[in-house]
């Protein structure tokens, strides 16, 4: 398991790297923290500008 404080990176992570932490507000009004302990993989889609 990855240590949460080992993930401060600014290069594009490579396969096998620890995933950078995420703690962001959602449109549902909650905050989402990742990686989470859901036992399921997560797909992150980083959108470009909205159009």
């Amino acid at each position: 398991m990855c240590h949460p404080f080992m993930t401060r990176i600014s290069a594009i992570p490579k396969v096998g790297d620890c995933a950078p932490d995420i703690d962001l507000p959602s449109l549902a009004g909650t905050r989402i923290r990742l990686p989470s302990a859901t036992g399921q993989p997560t797909l992150l889609v980083f959108m470009r500008h909205l159009a």
């Binding site: 398991m1 990855c2 992570p13 490579k14 396969v15 096998g16 790297d17 620890c18 995933a19 990742l34 990686p35 859901t38 036992g39 399921q40 993989p41 997560t42 797909l43 992150l44």
Partner: peptide, 8 residues
């Protein structure tokens, strides 16, 4: 895609 183990 982030695995359940927290790795990319």
């Amino acid at each position: 895609v982030i695995g359940a183990d927290g790795r990319v």
